[in-house]
Write a protein that binds this DNA or RNA. Structure first.
Length: 892
RNA sequence: GGCGGCGUGGCGAAAUGGCAGACGCAUCAGACUUAAAAUCUGAAGAGGGGUUACCCUCGUGUGGGUUCGAGUCCCACCGCCGCUACCA
């Protein structure tokens, strides 16, 4: 394309003008309660986007898909008289900025700032009606100060099992060791260490044994880490999903991730030593079928029980497993391996001796890290037993006959295949004959009675590994002294990361912050003697008041880990409610208003984002929210009442968009060629919001054509090539047919926006435009209505038409602040309707009847049809179905 | 393997159990034009019959079922996509 394509309407001129206008007028600023301009009589609507990580490559068309949907809804709700909170911000801590810093030596804040500026520019070019006064940035000290503050709330709290909620340790914890119950605690657990990134990763950041970012190999390694006790909330995180208006798939995903399973813990003793092995099983009814035991290779008990003869082999196996990455473990999953420890355990119910093995198919992190193996009724145990020639003992029968009457059959031949289903207990002493469910209950009762075990619930969910060995994250407000951690006082927040010359990882697992030697040395900066009444106001009480500490050198060292990127996104929706508040993470009034319950469940009214955050972000944010709720800091138990996932936008080739495929669409180029309104409308017209769908440049052009038709409905080009009000536009009343299509459009567009069915809303507006394209005169009133309902979709075009056609009633407010038009249902009803007539369910004729025609009249009219007479000639009419206003079906 | 989602023209799609394919893209034809683009008008699921208006048959992945009536509900199967994966 050598020369510029002529623009069908001047979007390139009007779009920037309106964007500047909205900014100058602060059209989309939403005042908080108590601020000037706040109208308490209006209901509130909080519509939220998942805020982006401002990457160097800028917006991708997937971003504005969801953002346009929320923008349309937000603009619509404003027109419907709501106080609308629709904010935007930046999830700006993250690995790419840090890696750029490592490469260039430039502080990550610099690149982050320019990326944010670029994202903001792109979003503004799309005409989104955000309240930019509420913009947040997780890397801003005024923001992460409160991230650190929330961490301190978590740190100072425990989960009280009696009340099933978080409470301040200082207030209700009566035990001796608060560090053992904190919701934020330090653990020495094995972690996913990624040598290439020089950091540990959360389980969630490891995909197929490789780092999610960069795809580097990950290995297991024990390190001291901060953990958040999310497992305490496992049950509530499942239960409280129920009242949420979320897609069922996402709810399922979350609840599967938490992974509740009911079963029992059973205590085995090690033969010849006092050691106890506790296992978790969902099939305690198969206890009599246990023929060996397996410990995870990393299990602490292994050292204590391994025999001298087996020591070398066990050590070798453990070493091999430790070296294996998760990837290798997964790849080798087909072939099970293991080593006998030389030790034996005793089955608590029958005293049978069971060899104790170690094998990497048993995971330290699930259950108790130890299992009783019942090869006859578990596929993994079956496979393992076959490989190592361990005994297999059937204790569940598919049919009830075997176990009943004469007791267990004498023969205990090994079964030919594994049976994992439910059935009836056999060879199981007191359980014989019982169906599986009853056998489970009975064995649990017996175990409890004899203190050999108990019924319990196990969760797949693990505590959240919350520290990272990175520079570009929130530093922990924690110092260490004599091996103990202490919280900083709130007055010392924000704790800023130190300046560094070199952002490279140390490679030892020690975080980059450790390089800031002076920063790491901590001296108490102020003492508030006598204010020890609250848990946080008193800086480092255990360090005491060391006179002259400043002269005598550091009394403590700072924590050098930083928080993961998830931290900032756990509460940003709260900050939006009161983004400028310098004295609280969110003002109480603002929080109560925007997250208000109003008798309903409350929280964010609509949250739109991609499925990639279905589990982690949403789970973490719910967890933090619940802690804050328990502590009385927020007023709702759940943050996001309604959740919608927008679908993926594929490349024009139907493949997922990616740089390597070269099919990525940049919103900037689309805006240049067709304008922001066309991009917005196209994104909404492609298909249902939640479906994934392929991009089509032709489709954008079609939408652009539609918008140009709307433009020409009001304006025409004069001899001089200027756009002037069309001569066809006159202030005349629309005729009946025109009124009908207008009111049908008001109704359908409104209903479709509420249902997020934007594609069909646009179809209806196209129908409306088609109906007026050749109208002459063209009633001004028709344009008023059309421009109003189209405004949330194509705000620039419609504002311009509104102004040029002089449609505003007071000439002051932008269209965006005009009320949504009302429709008259009376105009939608037809006097006469066309009704299809079917014979045996097949369409044979159509008749026109009066709207209010009775069933009998309709049937008579149908029978009177000559075509129907032909179809029914010589046949007996068995039945006639008349659905008033719908159809007639004659059965012969 | 498990869980979830989806299969409708050449393409994106629409359809409270009630006229399948609205709306748009691409296509074709006509109008305007010296010509093209743009614009406007119209045609069009597939197959067949008729001189026109028109008529018939088939048709929503496949096979069954429920129903007066199924794209829609139920069962089984096939295919694609996403997530998850030794979870005891």
């Amino acid at each position: 394309m050598s020369h510029e394509r002529r623009k069908p309407y001047p979007f390139d001129i009007i779009e920037p003008q309106w964007q500047a206008h909205w900014e100058a007028q602060q059209t989309f600023h939403t005042p908080n309660p108590g601020e000037p301009g706040f109208d308490a009589s209006r209901p509130k609507y909080y519509v939220l986007d998942m805020f982006p990580y401002p990457s160097g490559s800028g917006l991708h068309v997937g971003h504005p898909e969801g953002y346009t949907a929320t923008d349309i809804l937000g603009r619509y709700k404003i027109m419907r008289g709501f106080n609308v909170l629709h904010p935007m911000g930046w999830d700006a801590f993250g690995l790419p900025a840090e890696q750029h810093a490592i490469k260039t030596g430039e502080h990550p804040a610099i690149q982050t700032r320019s990326n944010v500026d670029n994202f903001r520019r792109q979003l503004k070019a799309l005409g989104f009606g955000y309240d930019w006064q509420r913009e947040v940035n997780t890397t801003d000290p005024g923001y992460y100060r409160w991230t650190q503050w929330i961490f301190l709330q978590i740190y100072h709290s425990w989960f009280n099992p009696a009340t099933q909620r978080a409470e301040p340790i200082a207030e209700t914890y009566t035990g001796a060791d608060p560090d053992s119950v904190r919701l934020a605690y330090v653990s020495e657990a094995p972690v996913n260490w990624c040598p290439a990134l020089g950091t540990v990763l959360a389980n969630e950041e490891v995909v197929d044994g490789k780092s999610e970012v960069g795809g580097h190999p990950v290995e297991r390694r024990p390190m001291r880490q901060w953990m958040l006790r999310i497992t305490a909330y496992a049950q509530r995180l499942i239960d409280e999903l129920e009242g949420l208006d979320w897609p069922t798939g996402i709810k399922l995903l979350q609840s599967n991730w938490i992974g509740r399973s009911e079963g029992a813990e059973v205590h085995f003793t090690v033969d010849g030593s006092g050691e106890k092995i506790t296992v978790f099983t969902t099939r305690p009814d198969t206890l009599y079928g246990a023929t060996y035991m397996v410990l995870a290779p990393e299990h602490a008990l292994v050292d204590a029980i391994v025999t001298e003869e087996q020591l070398a082999e066990v050590e070798a196996y453990r070493e091999k497993t430790a070296r294996k990455s998760d990837l290798e473990r997964t790849e080798l999953a087909k072939e099970k391996t293991g080593v006998w420890t030389g030790a034996w355990a005793l089955n608590p119910v029958n005293g049978q001796r069971l060899p104790i093995w170690i094998a990497d198919y048993v995971l330290l992190g699930y259950g108790t890290g130890a299992i009783m193996a019942v090869p006859a009724h578990d596929e993994r145990d079956w496979e393992f037993a076959r490989k190592y020639a361990l005994p297999i003992r059937q204790v569940v029968s598919e049919s009830p006959t075997l176990g009943l009457g004469g007791g267990s059959p004498p023969c205990e031949a090994e079964p030919l295949e594994v049976f994992t289903g439910e059935g009836f207990a056999i060879h199981s002493g007191p359980l014989d004959g019982l169906p599986t469910a009853d056998a489970k209950a009975e064995i649990s009762r017996l175990l409890t009675e004899q203190q050999l075990g108990f019924k319990t619930v196990n969760y797949k969910l693990r505590d959240w590994l919350f520290s990272r060995q990175r520079y570009w994250g929130e530093p922990f407000p924690i110092v260490w002294s004599e091996g103990k951690h202490h919280a900083l006082a709130e007055s010392e927040l924000p704790l800023n990361p130190p300046p560094l010359d070199d952002f490279k990882p140390t490679g030892t697992g020690e975080p980059p912050l450790a390089k800031a030697v002076d920063w790491v040395k901590y001296r108490p900066i102020h003492h508030e003697r006598g204010s020890a009444g609250t848990s946080t106001a008193f800086p480092l009480p255990s360090l005491g008041f060391i006179e002259g500490a400043e002269q005598d050198g550091p009394v403590a060292t700072r924590e050098t880990n930083t928080m993961p990127q998830w931290a900032g996104s756990c509460w940003y929706y709260l900050r939006y409610c009161d983004a400028q508040n310098a004295s609280r993470f969110v003002g109480e009034h603002a929080e109560k208003y925007w997250m208000a319950t109003n008798g309903k469940p409350g929280g964010v009214d609509l949250y739109v984002g991609g499925t990639e955050h279905a589990v982690l972000h949403l789970l973490y944010a719910r967890f933090w929210h619940k802690v804050l709720f328990d502590l009385g800091q927020v007023s709702t138990p759940e943050p996001f009442q309604r959740l919608v996932n927008q679908g993926l936008i594929m490349g024009e080739d139907g493949q997922k968009m990616s740089k390597s495929r070269g099919n990525v669409v940049n919103p900037d180029t689309v805006i240049d060629a067709y304008g922001a309104d066309a991009l917005r409308c196209y994104l909404m017209f492609m298909g249902p919001l939640e479906a994934s769908k392929p991009w089509s440049m032709n489709g954008v052009e079609g939408i652009n054509r539609f918008l140009a038709r709307v433009w020409r409905l009001g304006l025409e080009e004069n001899q001089a090539g200027e756009w002037v009000v069309s001569r066809a536009v006159q202030d005349v009343a629309p005729d009946k047919a025109q009124l009908k299509v207008l009111h049908a459009t008001i109704k359908k567009v409104g209903e479709d926006i509420e249902a997020l069915a934007f594609n069909t809303a646009i179809s209806q507006m196209m129908i409306c435009v088609n109906a007026f394209t050749n109208a002459n005169p063209r009633p001004l009133e028709a344009l008023r209505v059309l421009v109003q309902v189209l405004n949330p979709f194509a705000p620039h075009l419609t504002e311009e038409l509104w102004a040029r056609l002089g449609l505003g009633r007071n000439g002051v407010f932008p269209l965006a602040r005009e009320p949504w038009p009302a429709y008259d249902p009376a105009l939608l009803v037809e006097d006469e309707i066309e009704i299809p007539i079917q014979v045996n369910g097949k369409l044979r004729d159509k008749i026109v009847v009066k709207k209010e025609a009775t069933k009998e009249e309709v049937e008579a009219a149908a029978r009177a049809s000559t075509k129907i007479a032909e179809w029914t000639a010589g046949k007996e009419i068995k039945k006639v179905v008349v659905v008033p206003g719908k159809l007639v079906n004659i059965v012969v």
